[in-house]
Design a protein around this nucleic acid. Structure first.
Lengths: 127, 127
DNA sequence: ATTGTTGCAAATATTTTGCATTGTG
DNA sequence: CACAATGCAAAATATTTGCAACAAT
């Protein structure tokens, strides 16, 4: 049953995700980890990111650019994607889970949740 | 300045999108169009879907499966993705544009809009 | 006649996977 | 020692693009 063993690569990826708020892609994680682990491969990064997401230690985000982004902050929160510079930011905002009720009214299926991405201009690009 | 000319392929794609509520992928559009237009190529389907989206005659949807889906109904509305069968449905629901205000409170950038996908079990899979 | 559009194939881009080797428990 | 994890390269998937032939205006 596939016990999970320690690996310094996975640990480095996990630590990097916890250290940044940049919501990096797999490629970006790879580039940042490469300094410490010059022989790490992109395949290993993908494998471990998938594993971390499965284990609930990271979130996979879709930021609308067709590439997966990852977030070490697994608390439920909302994201914002800037149309100017493409950066992805966390939003500090009140929960909006009530929209599930709105969606469920008059719908015969079962609404289990939602995925939201806000977009616009980030503080820097707005200027 | 690149005037857009008529093409029966584009017209067939447009008509197919208007005729279905299935939110097809490019591949699905291709397979459905092929009956009428056996020599159409997938590249042409992609080119025309992109064109229709640019012209505002179709929507590109992200349904969470990593593949682009397309919708001929360009009126603003919300979508639901079933975790059971993978189908994508329209939701008849009250607008929830007020979430932009909630997101914008305490955010220094400019919220221009949002992208929401609801998920759960469709009426059939719920049974 | 001009030039937008197509079919086809090759090219990109992103992510996954097979396999021999290495590392963990 | 058993087997999970790695590095590497090749494969799989989704989408775009170069180009010569074709079609719309």
């Amino acid at each position: 049953m596939a016990a999970i063993r320690y690996s310094k690569q996975r640990e480095a990826i996990r630590m990097y995700l916890l250290s940044t708020k940049s919501h990096p892609t797999a490629e970006a994680v790879y580039n940042n980890i490469k300094n410490e682990h010059p022989r790490i491969s992109l395949g290993t990064v993908y494998r471990n990111l998938n594993l971390l997401v499965e284990q609930g230690e990271a979130l996979r985000l879709d930021c609308g650019d067709g590439v997966d982004h990852f977030d070490g902050d697994t608390r439920p929160h909302y994201h914002f994607a800037c149309r100017g510079c493409g950066c992805v930011m966390d939003l500090e905002m009140d929960p909006i889970d009530h929209i599930d009720q709105i969606a469920g009214a008059g719908f015969d299926g079962e609404i289990q949740g939602h995925r939201v991405l806000f977009y616009g201009l980030c503080p820097d690009c707005r200027k």
